[in-house]
Structures are given as structure tokens and as C-alpha cells.
Amino acid sequence: MQASVRRLRGRHVPARLLLSLIAVLLLLPIAVTLLYAFFSPEEIRAYMGTRNRYTADSFMALRLIPETVSLMQFYRVLITDREILRYFINSVLYTAGILAGQLLALPALAYGLSCFRFRGRDALAFGIVLLMVLPFQVTMVPSVLTLRALNLLNTPWAIVLPMLSAPFFAFLLRQYMLGIPAEIIEAAQIDSAGPLKCFLRIVIPMSRPVLGTMAALSFAESWNLVEQPLTYLTSRSDLYPLSVAFGQLTRNMSGIEFAGAALFILPSLFVYLFFQEDIMEGIRVADLR
């Protein structure tokens, strides 16, 4: 493999250039966000004030070097303008709740649908696939009615509870667990291991790659919630996560948006780095199967 990699280094230059260009374009917004987080708030306000003055003949100038490197944006985000911090805490709480709930419920659901045979199993699995296909807008109204009946509208549970039923992750886990050899489970059962013991001692350890994948993807989805808070928290703007409140805060152009965006990006970045190997392992194992 190393030899093939060495051979690749000398070839496919155009392809590599094209891929590099695409990578730069994809990474440019993130890089600019992190870079502008070290501009002073006054400089950002002045610079962003010019964003509507460009024409079709001239582009808006892209500033890459600040006049003075300043941590004032971070200071205001973390200390003085505590609104962003409070919305950040909201996002953390929602994500943690959703992640914990999904990690408790979905592996067990997938285990039941994969390792047990009962009447209606396949129909249930098909129903999960069907739910996976439906967009949020279709299930929004029934969800609102249900939550209102349960008196959970405008509460944090309105965000967390509907997200616990993630059909895609359930499907993903089920498909992975279907690939676990039945002989391993039978061997455990011969050793007088019950279903729960098999689940905890065999299925969960063997499903670590896909569980890591699920956690990373679930984190990304929960961290970036927009529609659900706007739908279920209409009269409680103080319960919004940062993904929703950020749009409102940037309207005032207070000059601290980029530091807030950097703060928003960092948790996703760290989570991805943490689960990167599991994600790649999960994809690889799925490919081999």
C-alpha cells in the first residue's frame, strides 16, 4: 500500500490540484470565521458595514490581516455579552439530553429488531425506514398537537423527547447488528448468558464503531437544531439553542459574531476528532460486509 501511495505522489497532479481547490473552498469559510474572531469588534463592524456596497463589477474585499490582533470578541462573548454563553449552554443541554436518550433507547431497539425473531419484525423495520424517509415538515404538526396535549410545548422536553426517536440511527444500528455473527451470540447463550447479558457483553462492545458514528452524527444533528426550536419554543426565546439565537444576534451586528461562531464550531470539531476513527472503522466494516 505504501508503494502504491508513493506511486500516486508523482501522478494525478491535475486531480490533486482540483481536489485541493475544492478543499480550500470548503475550508475557507471555517478558516475565515476563525481568523475574523481575532479582529476587534469595531473593525468587524466597520468591515461588515461594507458588505452591501459591492457591485457586479467589483467584489467585496477580503481582509485576512487585522489592524490589531484582539481578543475583545472572545472577552465580550464569554464575559460581558453573556447572551451567547447562555444560548451555548442551552445547546449543550439539549445535545447531551438527546445523545443520552438515543444511546439508551436506540441500541436496544436495534438489538431487538436484529437479534430476535417475532411476528411483525420486518413490518416494524419497514415502518422505521418509512419514518426515516419522511421529512420533519410532515411530522411537525402532529408533533405539536401531541406536545400540546402533553403540556410540553415551550419546555425543553419538547426538543429532547421527539429527537429520541431517530429512525435513521435505529436503521443504521439494526443493519450493523444484523452483521454480527449469530454463532457468537449462540455461544454466549450456551454459557447461560441471557439476552441482556448478550446485549451488554457482546453486542454493545462489538457495535462500538457504529455507536461512535451514531454519536457523532447525532451530535452534529442535535447541535445544529433550527426547525424544532422555532416550532416548539415559540414563546420562550430564552430556551433557544445557539444555532437559532445566533441568527437573531447577528442582525444587530455587534461585532462579536465571529467569536460566537468559533465558539459554536469548536465542540463539533472536537467531537468529530474524537469519533473520527470510529466513523472510518464503521464505514470500512460496512464496506467489507
Binding site: L266, P267, L269, F270, V271, Y272, L273, F274, Q276, E277
Partner: peptide, 13 residues
């Protein structure tokens, strides 16, 4: 990489 990510998360937290 996991250690770096974990440390980063802990520091940020």
C-alpha cells in the same frame, strides 16, 4: 487524536 479531542472538549467545557 482521541486524547487531543478529549482534552480540547474538557478545556472548552
Amino acid at each position: 487524536m482521541k486524547r487531543i479531542a478529549l482534552k480540547g472538549l474538557l478545556v472548552l467545557g
